[in-house]
Amino acid sequence: MSSGAVDPVDSDLVGPASDEAMQVIPLRHPWTWAASVLVVLVAAGVAWSVATNPAFQWPVVAQYFFDGQILAGLRRTLELTVAAMALGLVLGTALAVMRLSDNKLLSTLSWLYIWFFRSVPVLVQLIFWYNFGALYAHITLALPWGTVLYSASTNDVITPLTAALTGLGLAQAAYTAEVIRAGILSVAPGQTRAAKALGMGPVTIFIRIVFPQAMRVIIPPVGNEVISMVKGTSLVSVIAMADLLYTAQLIYARTYETIPLLIVASLWYLAIVSVLSVAQHALERHYGRGA
């Protein structure tokens, strides 16, 4: 302190006279409360208007909600989502591991696959697989010297279902591969070093050490992918497969009850995504252990 400065006076440093511990009041947010009340009122108003507007045709919604055709479409949507996603995850994991491999051949192949299947629109891929019979009439698996192991007419193998699964699954694998690769890269290199030092082989290290830790990073974006797949399956309407949305469209094309049937489909999508969100939360908790 410079010589000219006056010594600080006691009362500048010591606060109020009382030595008693004082009550601590956290910062209050009165406007949040006011805004919340406003939001609830507006929401109630919108809900009331939607519920009482006869143009929404709620009785029609109720009539079709458990309709046999709709439920069959719902089932098809769920089947396609599960099967295509399973294919996407298994193939995507393999592609991610290949992409990260030291082996130049494997990583290049994986790069090419991801590049191609992410570039071509899924709609085009679906139509391509559906019309595969026009390009190759027969699918034949043969050894180099001519012994035929398997041969079939393409039209017997490629049904709308197999075309849909191939198209959706192969495209999904390309996206999932990148998500899984990001997850694997997020695991600290020291983890692999420690596992190697303990004598673990590459497969054990991947399954027991790297993958479980990568899951924490992988699950949220894969949850996203699953949800887009639920709705993305509606693309299969182009190859004449009746999923949930296409079924609703088929019905309203006949009855002209467009809005109520779209509401039926949307309510089912909301229900599916709600269940998936709960499942995602449970998975995240499982893989978040120890963090």
Binding site: A188, R193, A194, A195, A197, I209, P212, Q213, Y287
Partner: peptide
């Protein structure tokens, strides 16, 4: 082998 940053498996 024992590492500077322990490298225990956190999960």
């Amino acid at each position: 082998m024992v590492f500077q940053h322990f490298n225990l498996f956190p999960h």
